[in-house]
Amino acid sequence: MEKTYSLVIHPSESILALVKSIKEQLATEVGWFNSKNSVGHITICEFKATEKQLENIKNKIQKICDTLSAVNVHLNEFSSFPNGAFFIAPDKDSHKNLKHIMKQFHKSLLIPNMLKSDNPHLSIARRLKPENLAKANKMFTSIDLNFICDSVVLRQFDEQIKQFFVIDTLKFGDNPKSNIIQGTLF
């Protein structure tokens, strides 16, 4: 049976705690919102796979991770998308570095119907009504956070609680000469 998975970047524990606090403050002001209970993350991709397929995918993710090097990420701005998403954005250099990491997975993980995220951001809320988005923008105006991105996190969606949970953390190997062989995973 297929299950839903996502590959994400988790910031440091202190940033995760801060994001949780921001979500709670926002919920106090506007009520429940999409992503309220989600752990802070930067999405790389989402896909469906069977357990057997997942083993091949995890092996491929590890091979990609072996070629990647840790990067410093600076998150320095609250921002939003027209669809009601409210998030913390990386600075220009961090955006470029995160996008490079994301592209490595996008071009090498050839999973049918994979949903790719190509705009790195740390989500706070999704699908806020315009008036609630305005409140969020008024409540949160400045931020300055740093973390080292040295791994990716594989998560599985729990249909009962409607949340993703971590099933594996894969560290970067800092071995850029390692060969990645492109091919369809299934």
Rank of each mutant, 00 (worst) to 15 (best):
T169I: 11
N83G: 01
F172A: 05
E159T: 15
G40M: 06
S38W: 10
I9Y: 03
Q62D: 14
G84L: 01
N76G: 13
Q163L: 15
L26K: 06
N146Y: 08
D66F: 03
T67W: 00
E51L: 11
I64P: 09
E77M: 09
H41M: 04
E24L: 14
N137M: 08
A49H: 05
H121R: 14
P90M: 04
I167Y: 08
S79Y: 08
I180H: 05
N132Y: 10
E77I: 04
I101R: 09
R126L: 12
I124P: 02
L98F: 00
V152T: 09
S69D: 04
D118E: 13
I167T: 11
E24R: 15
I111Q: 02
D144Y: 01
N113L: 12
K48V: 06
I167K: 12
S38M: 14
G40T: 09
S123Y: 02
H95R: 14
F87E: 09
L75I: 12
A27I: 10
F47G: 04
F78D: 04
G173F: 01
S151I: 03
V19I: 12
I61Q: 06
T43H: 03
Q25M: 06
Q182N: 12
S69L: 02
A136M: 06
L98V: 02
E2K: 15
F140N: 05
G183N: 06
K36F: 11
K135W: 03
K60H: 11
I111L: 02
D150P: 03
S12C: 01
E55Y: 10
R126I: 03
A49M: 09
T184I: 05
D158M: 10
L115Y: 13
L128S: 01
V71K: 09
K52V: 14
K103T: 06
F78A: 03
K60R: 15
L68D: 03
I88D: 00
D144I: 01
N37Q: 14
I148F: 11
N179G: 05
L110R: 15
P90W: 01
I15L: 04
P176A: 09
H41V: 06
L98W: 02
E13T: 14
L170S: 11
D93F: 10
L185D: 04
V166R: 14
G173C: 05
K107P: 00
I143K: 01
F81T: 13
K162F: 09
S21M: 03
L18A: 05
K116Q: 11
F87W: 10
N72D: 14
S12R: 03
M1A: 12
S80H: 12
Q163N: 14
K138A: 15
A85H: 04
C45G: 13
L133Y: 00
H106T: 09
S117T: 11
A49R: 08
A89F: 10
F33N: 06
S123P: 02
S79Q: 09
I180N: 07
S142G: 05
I61S: 05
T141N: 10
I88A: 00
H74R: 08
M139Y: 02
S69W: 00
K3H: 14
I143S: 03
L128Y: 03
N146V: 07
T4E: 10
L128D: 04
F47Y: 14
